[in-house]
């Protein structure tokens, strides 16, 4: 499903060149649960952005389901994110002016899904994360854990094959973090791949594989 072959990503900050990801080769199969760990600045977020088609490698090849992402246009990568990839971020990024239901509907709105189907699927997705009774609540009426669960519903409503979570529990207390992780694992049904970037060993331990990164390189892999 995911094949990275000698992938590098570097960019210039001021006059210096930063090598965020260096010579990473990696295979992740469908349905796997992988954790990427490392200190801040180790390049794990950059790697996640490449995996999520938000960024492109400077060199090397990234194949997602057989397609060379580096060769795709911006619009084609947008299309891929829309249909294949779900994102969950540390800061949730819910639109404060929209209800939980409308936030979950957002990806479907831009994918052109008809209104009645959007409502039905958003309701299902919120029920799946245990927030069926919070559809009409706005984000500021929800707790942090509930907001992250809305974000997860939003990430999954397009039924992506890959779910990427960037520090999903970074802003949550221990019990909410537990809930969110349990939920993510439960929703990794079927062939759905889950990749979690974290520096919390508790969170990482739940994965089938842990990839440690330092200075842009994969340091060790442990199953």
């Amino acid at each position: 499903m995911i094949e990275l072959d000698d992938v590098c990503r570097s960019y210039t900050v001021g006059d210096s060149e930063v090598h965020a990801v260096q010579h990473v080769s990696l295979h992740i199969g469908a349905g796997e649960h992988v954790a990427i760990m490392g200190p801040s600045g180790s390049g794990k977020s950059t790697l996640l952005h490449i995996l999520g088609c938000l960024d492109r490698p400077t060199s090397g090849v990234y194949r997602f389901r057989g397609r060379d992402v580096g060769m795709l246009s911006d619009d084609e990568r947008s299309h891929m994110r829309q249909h294949e990839i779900g994102f969950v971020f540390q800061f949730f990024y819910l639109l404060a002016r929209l209800t939980a239901g409308a936030n979950v509907e957002l990806p479907m709105l831009f994918a052109g899904v008809p209104k009645s189907e959007r409502t039905r699927r958003a309701t299902e997705a919120l029920e799946a994360v245990g927030l069926g009774d919070r559809i009409h609540h706005r984000p500021d009426q929800l707790s942090g854990g509930q907001r992250q669960r809305v974000a997860i519903a939003r990430a999954l409503v397009m039924r992506p094959s890959l779910l990427l979570a960037d520090e999903p529990t970074g802003n949550l207390d221990r019990s909410s973090a537990e809930e969110v992780m349990t939920l993510l694992e439960r929703l990794r049904a079927g062939d759905r791949t889950l990749i979690v970037v974290t520096h919390d060993p508790e969170v990482a331990r739940r994965a089938q594989r842990i990839i440690r990164m330092t200075d842009g390189r994969i340091e060790e892999e442990r199953v």
């Binding site: 999520g52 938000l54 911006d74 299309h79 994110r81 829309q82 994102f87 990024y93 957002l106």
Partner: peptide, 11 residues
């Protein structure tokens, strides 16, 4: 940013 991450095109 989140709209772009959700797959909304630049245009």
């Amino acid at each position: 940013g989140i709209l772009r991450a959700l797959g909304v095109r630049r245009g």
